[in-house]
Design a binder for these strands. Structure first.
Lengths: 106, 106
DNA sequence: TATAAATACAACCATTTGGTTGTGCAAATT
DNA sequence: AATTTGCACAACCAAATGGTTGTATTTATA
């Protein structure tokens, strides 16, 4: 198994989606992200590491505090993929029916 | 760890995205999905099980063959989430600058 | 200076993931 | 009737995931 680090992986976990949502409003430090998250600072730190490796956040050291900014540009890729799939899907009609009709003939 | 079965999980894996893309064009049986996929039928079957549990596909038995149809409605949820995040993010400007200015004053 | 706060780093853990092979069975085909 | 085809089920595997605790280090603050 390969350690996949892409947008899809980034948003696959609900905790990471929560983090992204929080950061969408503006930069926060780790403590602020931990607040009301229900998981430990170390747990959050691991998710931030993943998000960083996915290029979804930028970390800025400021004294002893570390600020996280979201980088949401990559989410475009997800929307593009979804739209492409849905476009194809919209044109799929009657394919199953056609198949069923064909097998009925045999 | 909880076994998460949702759209985000469904599209997190590249093989599953490939399957969804193939199925977007219309229903296929397992053999057709396996073709050129580079992985075994059993491997594909496992992904189909996941996709089924996520509600992303519908399985139709037809003799000894099993046909898979994509159900892409749920992808709306992903797009909605992304748009919500991006909307917030679009309004985030100057928050980090403001913070940095404040700490500079202290 | 002593202490508290913010973080980093490592080890540990159970479960999940994403595959594989191997076996067996039902449905078509020859 | 024998064989092939399509699939289900189980066991196995290494690696990844999503957490935890425990310890050390650096930076502010009282």
């Amino acid at each position: 198994m390969i350690e996949r680090r892409d947008v899809y992986q980034a948003i696959a976990d609900p905790t990471r989606r929560m983090i992204i949502q929080k950061l969408s409003g503006g930069a926060l430090n780790i403590g602020q992200i931990v607040e009301d998250s229900g998981i430990t600072r170390q747990g959050i730190a691991k998710h931030l590491k993943v998000l960083n490796e996915c290029g979804m956040i930028t970390l800025t050291q400021k004294g002893r505090e570390q600020f996280c900014e979201a980088r949401l540009d990559q989410l475009d890729e997800v929307v593009d993929w979804v739209n492409q799939s849905r476009k194809l899907w919209g044109q799929r009609f009657e394919k199953l029916d056609k198949f069923l009709a064909e097998t009925k003939k045999l």
